[in-house]
Design a protein around this nucleic acid. Structure first.
Lengths: 261, 261
DNA sequence: CAGTGGTCTAGACCACTGG
DNA sequence: CAGTGGTCTAGACCACTGG
């Protein structure tokens, strides 16, 4: 009906944004583009629509379009080349996973995660853990020990401590095979954002060997980590013992010092 | 001299920016603030100057000031709290290190890194490595094997393969104890940006045990990684065997899925 | 309420790429 | 040369915090 000529642009493949939606425009656009990349509509090596084209077509400012693309670059799904455009990264290199989320880790490998809860109780902890969790000597912590299974086979033994005040009542919550992080996000509005970890190779203790169905002194991977919220509140101190026979832990992709140095 | 009243603001502690400097203003501001944080001038938990104050005082737009702070947030040095301000993160949580840069890793632990080069030659490689490095069957790769030492003690055995075309002549370059990445950055203008890795615990082979001065079958940590540039060109395929006795590898801090999901 | 970060606009000029 | 991302301006209004 309009006299305006609309050129056929790549941006036309992007579903329009909803300005009444409380979700910010740049996040909406991020989701639209992420969908197209994940679904394979835009393939690895292909160019995504230029910033100006997205901005024009979706009636947002270029800065808003750019903000969405910033997030895609940050997540590693696309990369920019000045003067050429912005391109979709190799699919194999996607799926950046923090190594403390066992559930997502396993799903990414095409395995079915589950858990057996061995311990789930409030405890008082020693000085070292008090410092790690930033709690006082009177404060309690939720102690959670789980055998983690992939396709029904035990692959890790995981002991966590969480400040009780962060998750009151979680000691009585049936956790089962659920992801701890999804419970924290959905019931307690706590969003684990950062993780800091150390890894070493040790010989399995008798108990670890028993739970993991391996031999005593077999080499196992011990990852000790602390998880934080965006504002660096401590969410969890966790020690995970992975049986290492036939299981390499994928560490995901990390960005090496940007211009930070 | 001016009639203008200058209020005493925190932003006044920031050294002025140089608009003639080819370095972008936001990077200059990033460096200024990073210095103040690293030097301890602004301490952990303290607030950095508000965006508007920085912008006013330094005569830049708020978006430019914000861009600098975005980079600080990204690096994990500060975190934002809406309505309150932007705060310096705990010092202990700084120093995000990619686990493939042995040199930086060791320096961060207060140890002196050094290396013994065992192999440094051009080779043709098998199919798997050709695929990993994205090189053709005729293309050569630089094969580099080094024993990595901390304070003179061997702690890791590291074997790298780099596409020859990326670093012509590096086979004749004396590497010694230098960081491979610093050579790549300074002589070849290659900037390793991403790393993707797998880690497992295994028993040391006879040769590995010999080089690392440990016993055969002692548990060792094997990290296999691939390093990429910003635009996902393969820089290096590397396999590192760490002796794990008395040495846990710090994996650095990772961001767990932002709103990426 | 003032102050803060969160989001957004409608521009501008630059550096780089590839034809 | 046109097209692209990189940087930058000078505003605006919103949501949230803490007194």
């Amino acid at each position: 009906m309009s006299l305006e000529t609309t050129r056929d642009t790549a941006a036309m493949q992007v579903r329009p944004l909803n300005k009444n939606n409380p979700e910010p425009l740049y996040r909406q656009l991020y989701s639209r583009l992420a969908e197209q990349i994940i679904s394979g509509e835009i393939k690895a090596g292909e160019r995504i629509p230029p910033e100006r084209e997205l901005a024009d077509y979706l009636n947002v400012s270029r800065i808003t379009a750019r903000q969405a693309i910033d997030a895609l670059v940050e997540s590693g799904m696309v990369y920019r080349e000045q003067g050429r455009g912005t391109f979709v990264a190799e699919p194999k290199m996607r799926g950046v996973i923090g190594f403390t989320s066992f559930s997502e880790e396993m799903i990414a490998r095409g395995m079915q995660p589950s858990s057996i809860v061995i311990t789930q109780e409030l405890v008082t902890v020693g000085e070292r853990l008090q410092r790690a969790l930033k709690i006082g000597p009177e404060e309690q912590a939720l102690h959670l020990v789980r055998v983690r299974l992939a396709n029904g086979k035990p692959v890790a033994l995981q002991a966590s401590y969480l400040p009780q005040r962060l998750c009151p009542g979680l000691e009585n919550e049936p956790i089962g095979s659920q992801s701890l992080y999804s419970i924290l996000r959905e019931k307690y509005y706590i969003n684990p954002t950062w993780t800091e970890a150390e890894v070493e190779a040790v010989q399995a203790s008798a108990e670890e060997a028993h739970e993991l169905q391996i031999d005593k002194n077999d080499p196992v991977l011990v990852i000790k980590g602390i998880t934080f919220t965006e504002s660096f509140e401590v969410v969890e101190s966790v020690r995970t013992v992975y049986r290492s026979k036939g299981l390499a832990i994928y560490l995901g992709r990390q960005r090496i010092s940007s211009f930070a140095r």
